[in-house]
Design a protein around this nucleic acid. Sequence first.
DNA 1: CTGAAAGCGCTAACAT
DNA 2: ATGTTAGCGCTTTCAG
Lengths: 332, 332
Amino acid sequence: MVTIKEVAKRANTSIATVSRVINNSSYVKEETRQRVLQAIKELNYQPLTRQLAGRENQFIGLVVPDVSNPFFGKMARGLADAAGKFGYSITLCNIDGICRGEDDYLLDLIENRVDGVIYASSHRIREVIKRAKQKKIPLVMLDREIKYTDINTVTIDNNYGAFLATEHLISLGHKKIAFIGGPKNFQISEQRRIGYEKALEKYGLSYDEELVYTGIFTMESGFKAVKQLLEDKKSFSALIAANDLMAIGAINCLNQHGISVPDDVSVVGFDDISIASTMEPKLTTIAYPIERISERSLELLMKQISNEDVCPEKITLFPKLIVRGSTKSLKE
Amino acid sequence: MVTIKEVAKRANTSIATVSRVINNSSYVKEETRQRVLQAIKELNYQPLTRQLAGRENQFIGLVVPDVSNPFFGKMARGLADAAGKFGYSITLCNIDGICRGEDDYLLDLIENRVDGVIYASSHRIREVIKRAKQKKIPLVMLDREIKYTDINTVTIDNNYGAFLATEHLISLGHKKIAFIGGPKNFQISEQRRIGYEKALEKYGLSYDEELVYTGIFTMESGFKAVKQLLEDKKSFSALIAANDLMAIGAINCLNQHGISVPDDVSVVGFDDISIASTMEPKLTTIAYPIERISERSLELLMKQISNEDVCPEKITLFPKLIVRGSTKSLKE
DNA sequence: CTGAAAGCGCTAACAT
DNA sequence: ATGTTAGCGCTTTCAG
């Protein structure tokens, strides 16, 4: 392990000066500076124990319900890449309330071992916020909006995303568009449903409750939704799912009934998880802009880490429509 | 932040004794011990700067190609849970060779900031092993076997897994069983193909090269495989995919051709990723035993971390067949 | 502009 | 059985 001492020796200066160079904390003669930089490079030096001297330890905690869910997998990947650019590493923590009793332990752990946390789970959310405030732990909420709290938040405009999806289908001539959504008590489900409703309204189509199905965010649920719709003899030429997993389940069900996507029914998903682009037909979807989300989250977190008093803010990013093979003009 | 000092004060003893209790490093009178434990609990104390005093920092690095792939997502989840039980946290690192030039940086980072690493990517693998040996960084290879090197490894018996899958189908009466595999130059693809071949042999069925397709491990590839098979007019009543993603793609294609799973064709996957159990039909598959794999990997790593000279070993776990809805007896 | 030195939380060697 | 203390790598006064 290379230490600051060795760097100092090689650069023929003191450890204090090396520290100054690393942290850019005060003026160092350009010449000395260069020598230090050179030594750092040659020795491949990295400061590793800053934490002790009261500084950050360059770790940030990411809390998701479950990385094995492709959506959170995508999120973890994006955040890990972004963190790397800031010289930070991601510590992964899955909290979905399944491992009963371990939450406390996990929460303590994450709070104590990282410089900041990105929280993307709903589990014990209000408590997490309270604790973070008390302990002054930098926190950014990802993809969850907590009303009436001034907490740093990064989200996407779900309403707009669903609006885009609907608009796309309408522009293709579809008039009977089903919506299969998530649980009513999830903000994002409702937002996406409302976006759909607003788009219909804007284009003078009526909102038909019979074409709206409420499920949960799984493939299975998407499958059941379509099954139900079909059994109930609802007629529709297009369908919007509240996330890609549901969309995939829906397509499966359609296929099994001999209904072709996109020839007979067009389908739009939401999130653009990795498999959306490797299925057949490739899924038209609303892309959750993970790169930008990650960047902005990290920025907010970094601000908090370096600066004691920053004003919390909420950043809302706009998702984008990605047209692929699962949607098509309504046939005459 | 609670320090050892505060604990000592509250327990009315010295910091050395507290340290002893924490590390179980020497005898402490039971009474004192209890007082210390009590204080630790009351203050919610956690030692956080051990690293500095030459000890571990309780982080282990997990390197995968890409967590957004559901298989690696499952792996990350399993490992994170297991690490938690040892009081360790997982630091996530995606190295798939896509971010060119950043590998070096990532490798340095991971090597310097963790007590050990679990490596489950193929990227720069021999180099990683060399560096780990040089720097004496505890390393466990996951799911990749490197021949002619004595490196701690945990894998599953892929041959056996595919054998099980084939045997299952044969026991259901299937005789024409297709196999859609991964790249020829991947060990696991070959192992799985061979397991399939051996099972056919054992039960006196002939291995028909025409029923073996070589693809890559994606849904798209599974789809194409079946498309090809169908176009070539191959006849088969069952199909084994080298992983779940391919199996799902295959099922999609079958469905689109009006072929029902499992009524017309039975399908077995491999891995048991999370979506395998929420699709319709639920996928019969060979489960990658992530809990046991995680446990064993951690154990091997812990041994290396605590003990300087341990003999490297290779642990091979046996996967299990999980029968669900995508397989069925051959119809008469 | 730079160096010396204190101190961060903790462990381990040394005392007692 | 327990306390005292040096020292780990680093940052940050404090002196020059």
